[in-house]
Design a protein around this nucleic acid. Structure first.
Length: 489
RNA sequence: CGGGGUGUGGCUCAGUCCGGUUAGAGUACCUGGUUUGGGACCAGGGGGUCGCAGGUUCGAAUCCUGCCACCCCGACCA
C-alpha cells in the first residue's frame, strides 16, 4: 500500500501537516496564519465542544456572548494585560471602502476613520469586566459564572495549523466571586475539569501545575495549566486557568456590597481551551497511517464497509449491515454504512484509517456464507472475525477498550520519555527527548538563561512536585523541589 | 526583521547550470472495458498567462534587472 502521509520519525512537522490535510481536518486560508477547518475536522471539534459545554454546565456555568470588537482604551485599563497583548493585536481603523480613483477595485475611504480604533479581541477579559461592572451590585449577584464560545485573533509571527493560528476558536470562562478563597477554588476546579476532559475524553494524560511568573497570563495573579507530552517529546500547554485576584475588578471598578454593608472589589478567574486541543489530539495518538481517535470524540465510531461485485450481493449485505447498524445505534454508537460503489473496499479501508475511525466492520460474500463479520480496530490494527449475532456486543466492548488502550499507550509513552536530570550535561541531553524534572533556583533570570541555552522552558511547577532538597541544575543554588522542563509548542 | 529555499495543469515535481520542434512525468479528473476481501489494471481524453513586469535575442520556463508571493529555521507565542 502506498504511504499516504510521510513517516512520523522522519520529519514530525511534515507528517503533522500532511496528516491534517489528507485526513480532511483543515487547510491554510488565503490569509497568512488563518485556517480553514473542514467538515471532518469541525465534527471532531464539535464533539469536544459538546463534552466540555456539558461539564461547564454541570459545574454551574452559563453561556453568554460578548462582542468581537474592543475599544482600544479598554485594553490599557489593566497595565500587565495591555503589555502582554499589545504586540499581537489586529486593529480596525476605518469603517468604509470606496471605489478607487482608477475605477479598479476598492480602497479604504480616508473620510471613514474611526474616532477610537477597535481591537479585534485577543481575549475578552476587558470587554467582559466592563459589563460585569453593571451586572454586579451586591453579594446576591455573586458568584457570576459565565462562559463564552468564540473566536479570537492574535497576530503571531509564526503559525502552525491548530497549534497556533492567527484566528482560533475557543471557550473562555470568566467568573466573579465575593471572596478570594472562592475564586481560587473556582480556578482549581476548572483546571480539574480540563484535566478530566483531557484524560477521559481525549485519552491524553496531563500534568497539572502552576506557571512560573515569567509564563503567567498577562493580568493574572496565578496561572495554572495542564501540560501534555506529544509524540516528538515536546510539551503542549493544553488548557489554562487563571486566578485574577482583584486586578480586573480594580481596573474596571467592579465593586459589590457585602452582607455587612461594606463595599469591596470582587475576585476574578478566567480559563480557556482552544482548537489547539485538536493539535494535541493528533499529536498524542496518531501513527503513520493517519489519525487515531478516542471513541468518545470520534464523529463516526464504527464504519461498515460492504464488499460486493453485484447489486444483488450489495442488497444481501445491506440487510445484514443495516440490522447491525440499528443494533449499534441502540447502544448509542454512531455508525456509517458506506455503500458507495464509486470507491473500492481497499480505498475505503485506507481512507477511514486516515480519518481515525475507531472500528471498521467489513462484510462480504464469504461472511454471508459463514454468518460472520470482520472487525478491525484502529488503535492496534488487529483484525478478527466474529459471529454476526455477537458483533454488536463485541463492538460495544471495543469502544471502552480502545479508549482505555490509547490512554494507557500515551501514559506509557510519557513515562518512557520523562526523566530526572541532576547535572547540567544530563539536563541538556535529556531535554532534547522529552519531559525533564530538575531543580531550579526559583529566579526568572536562571529560567531565561536555561531557555536561551537549550530552548527548553519551565512548563509548570507540578502540584505533585517531588519535595526534596537539591541544587539548581544551572546555578547550583539551593532548591526545595523539582520543576517540569521541556521544549514546548 | 535576519538566514536559507521555492514559484511550471487541482496536487507533487522534472526541465533552468549550457536558450532551439507543439513544455513533460506521476497523481487526481472524465469516458469505455476488465476488476472489487488492503489505496486496481488497460486503452483513450480534457486541463498550462511556466509568479508578475520590463529587457537581451531570429528565438526565453531557461539569460539579465526589478517587483511580488509562499515555505522552512530564528526573533514573537498571554
Amino acid at each position: 500500500m502506498a504511504k499516504a502521509i510521510p513517516s512520523r520519525s522522519e520529519d514530525y512537522s511534515l507528517w503533522y501537516n500532511e496528516l491534517i490535510k489528507k485526513a480532511g481536518l483543515a487547510e491554510n486560508s488565503p490569509v497568512r496564519g488563518c485556517m480553514v477547518i473542514k467538515p471532518y475536522g469541525f465534527a471532531i471539534w464539535e464533539k469536544m465542544q459538546q463534552a466540555l459545554d456539558q461539564m461547564f454546565k454541570d459545574t454551574g456555568h452559563s453561556n453568554a456572548y460578548f462582542p468581537l470588537f474592543i475599544p482600544k482604551s479598554f485594553l490599557s485599563r489593566e497595565a500587565d494585560h495591555v503589555e502582554g497583548f499589545a504586540k499581537e493585536c489586529a486593529v480596525v481603523t476605518h469603517y468604509r471602502l470606496k471605489t478607487s480613483e482608477d475605477g479598479k477595485g476598492v480602497v479604504v475611504d480616508p473620510d471613514a476613520k474611526l474616532e477610537e480604533e477597535l481591537i479585534v479581541r485577543p481575549t475578552s477579559e476587558t470587554v467582559i469586566w466592563d459589563s460585569y461592572k453593571n451586572w454586579i451590585q451586591s453579594y446576591r449577584d455573586l458568584p457570576l459564572l459565565i462562559n463564552q464560545w468564540a473566536n479570537v485573533v492574535r497576530w503571531e509571527l509564526r503559525t502552525r495549523l491548530f497549534l497556533r493560528t492567527t484566528e482560533f476558536l475557543w471557550q473562555e470562562g470568566h467568573t466573579a466571586h465575593a471572596t478570594k478563597q472562592e475564586a481560587v477554588d473556582e480556578t482549581l476546579q476548572m483546571l480539574d475539569v480540563y484535566a478530566d476532559f483531557a484524560e477521559n475524553f481525549m485519552a491524553m494524560p496531563v500534568i497539572k501545575g502552576v506557571k512560573t511568573p515569567a509564563e503567567r497570563f498577562a493580568g493574572a495573579v496565578d496561572t495554572y495549566c495542564i501540560e501534555a507530552i506529544m509524540q516528538d517529546g515536546k510539551a503542549l500547554q493544553s488548557g489554562t486557568s487563571h486566578f485574577l485576584g482583584q486586578n480586573f475588578a480594580k481596573a474596571f471598578d467592579v465593586k459589590f456590597a457585602t452582607k455587612e454593608g461594606k463595599e469591596e472589589y470582587v475576585w476574578g478567574t478566567s480559563w480557556g481551551v482552544s482548537t489547539r486541543l485538536m493539535g494535541a489530539l493528533i499529536m498524542a495518538h496518531s501513527d503513520d497511517d493517519g489519525l487515531v481517535l478516542p471513541p468518545k470524540l470520534a464523529p463516526i465510531q464504527v464504519v461498515i464497509v460492504p464488499i460486493f461485485r453485484t447489486d444483488e450481493e450489495l442488497k444481501k449485505i445491506s440487510e445484514v449491515a443495516l440490522k447491525m447498524a440499528a443494533g449499534l445505534k441502540t447502544k448509542g454508537i454512531s455508525v456509517k454504512f458506506d455503500n458507495r460503489d464509486t470507491y473500492k473496499p481497499g480505498w475505503k479501508f485506507a481512507e477511514y484509517e486516515l480519518q481515525g475511525v475507531p472500528v471498521r466492520v467489513a462484510i462480504g460474500p464469504r461472511d454471508l456464507e459463514k454468518g460472520t463479520v470482520e472487525i478491525a480496530r484502529r488503535d492496534t490494527k488487529e483484525k478478527s472475525f466474529h459471529p454476526l449475532d455477537s458483533a454488536v456486543e463485541h463492538i460495544t466492548w471495543l469502544m471502552e477498550d480502545i479508549q482505555t488502550n490509547i490512554y494507557n499507550r500515551a501514559s506509557l509513552f510519557r513515562e518512557e520519555n520523562t526523566a530526572e536530570a541532576n547535572t547540567w550535561e544530563e539536563f541538556k541531553e535529556l531535554v532534547e527527548k522529552g519531559f525533564v524534572y530538575a531543580h531550579w533556583d526559583g529566579t526568572e533570570e536562571t529560567e531565561e538563561k536555561i531557555k536561551n541555552e537549550t530552548r527548553a522552558t519551565i512548563r509548570c511547577i507540578p502540584f505533585d512536585q517531588k519535595k526534596e532538597e537539591g541544587t539548581c541544575i544551572f546555578t547550583g543554588a539551593p532548591s526545595s523541589g523539582r520543576v517540569l522542563f521541556a521544549k514546548a509548542y
